[in-house]
C-alpha cells in the first residue's frame, strides 16, 4: 500500500508564493498533482478557486511527430481556447520561439535548442491565476511567469530557488509535512537536518 501524502493542511491566498522542498519521493510532485485535480484525495479535501495551469510534464507535452503549429493548436485546444484565439496563440508562440519556417515542419527535426524554445513558449503562453510548477521550468528564464501568477506553487530540490522566489515553504518528508514557514528558516532547518543525517551516516 502506498501512502503518498498524509496530514497536510494549508491554504494560500493571492500573492502567496509557496515552495515545496524535500528529498526524492517526499511527495512534492504528488502534492502538485493533487492541487491540479489530477489525483483526487482519498481522505480529506482539496479546494482551488481560479484558473490553474500545471507545468509538470518535463517532456513539455509535445508530440514530436506533429509540426510546431499543430503542437501549438493542440495546446490551445487543451486549454479550451476558441478558434480565433488559437490563431493568435500560434502567432504569439511562433514569434516568441523564433521558429520561422520551421513552424510547419515536424518537431522531430528541430534542433535541441528549438525544441526547448518552443516548449518554453508553449508553457508560458497560458497565463493562469494559479501556477503549479515542477522545478524543470525554472531552468529557462521563467521569472516573468512566476511574477504574473497570483499564486505560485513550486516544487524543487534547489534551496536557492526557494529562498529567491518563495514567501512560504513546506518541507515534505515521506509524505508528511515536516515544517511549514518562512523560507530562510525552513531552508536552514532542512539543510541542517541533511547535514546532521550525513554526519550520522559518516559516524556509523
Amino acid at each position: 500500500m502506498v501512502q503518498a501524502l498524509l496530514d497536510i493542511s494549508f491554504s494560500l491566498r493571492g500573492g502567496d508564493r509557496l515552495g515545496l522542498i524535500g528529498s526524492n519521493g517526499a511527495g512534492k510532485t504528488t502534492l502538485l498533482r493533487t492541487l491540479a485535480g489530477i489525483y483526487e484525495p482519498v481522505v480529506g479535501h482539496v479546494r482551488v478557486q481560479g484558473s490553474l495551469n500545471a507545468l509538470l510534464d518535463s517532456s513539455l507535452g509535445m508530440n514530436l511527430e506533429l509540426t510546431g503549429r499543430e503542437n501549438i493548436m493542440l495546446r490551445g485546444l487543451y486549454n479550451g481556447l476558441p478558434r480565433p484565439a488559437l490563431e493568435r496563440l500560434a502567432q504569439d508562440v511562433a514569434e516568441f520561439a523564433e521558429l520561422g519556417d520551421f513552424l510547419d515542419l515536424p518537431v522531430r527535426i528541430y534542433s535541441a535548442g528549438m525544441v526547448v524554445r518552443l516548449g518554453f513558449a508553449l508553457a508560458t503562453a497560458m497565463r493562469p491565476q494559479i501556477l503549479l510548477m515542477d522545478e524543470w521550468i525554472l531552468a529557462g528564464d521563467a521569472a516573468f511567469m512566476v511574477r504574473s501568477a497570483d499564486i505560485l506553487v513550486l516544487s524543487t530540490h534547489d534551496t536557492r530557488i526557494v529562498t529567491t522566489w518563495c514567501s512560504r515553504v513546506l518541507w515534505l518528508d515521506q509524505g508528511h509535512l515536516r515544517l511549514d514557514g518562512d523560507p530562510d528558516y525552513v531552508v536552514a532547518q532542512y539543510l541542517g537536518g541533511a547535514a546532521e543525517a550525513a554526519t550520522v551516516t559518516a559516524g556509523k
Binding site: Q3, L5, D7, I8, S11, G14, L31, G44, V48, Q49
Partner: peptide, 20 residues
Amino acid sequence: TKPEKNRVGGCVRPTRPGSA
C-alpha cells in the same frame, strides 16, 4: 473570480489505493 480572492487549499491524506 477576482484574482485577489484566488486561493489554493489542500488537506490531503490518501491512504490505500485499494479503497480508492
